[in-house]
Amino acid sequence: MSTQGGSFLHEMAITQSVVQAVCERMGDAPVRRVCLEIGTLSGVVADSVRFCFDLVTEGTTLEGASLEIVQPTGKARCRDCGAEFALTDLLALCTCGSANRELLAGEELKIREVEVLA
């Protein structure tokens, strides 16, 4: 299912964590929409989470909810020259040639918001 070595199961665990966290926070309120942030460098494949979502939400207060996934792209700051640059993958170098960079964005893995019945 995934582009990462056929591994799909961690997206299942990730999706279960989403459902568990939303249920804990929102109690019995029926959930109509869930918005997640999954950075492009997070190691989590958004399409796999989408695939898991309907399976995992079955029988929960999230059943039938729509799923929105926002995917922040990678951004880094070079620790050697100070430049900020877009990071398309975790191996990309700064234009100065340095691999020594601080990740500013792209590794997000969070629940941004939910919409529940009032």
Binding site: Q20, A21, V22, R25, K110, I111, E113, E115
Partner: peptide
């Protein structure tokens, strides 16, 4: 349209772990 409200969570997915 049933009334809904949006709740901002801004919570790490793996917060419990």
């Amino acid at each position: 349209h049933p009334e809904t409200r949006t709740v901002t969570l801004e919570q790490a997915v793996l917060a419990r772990n």
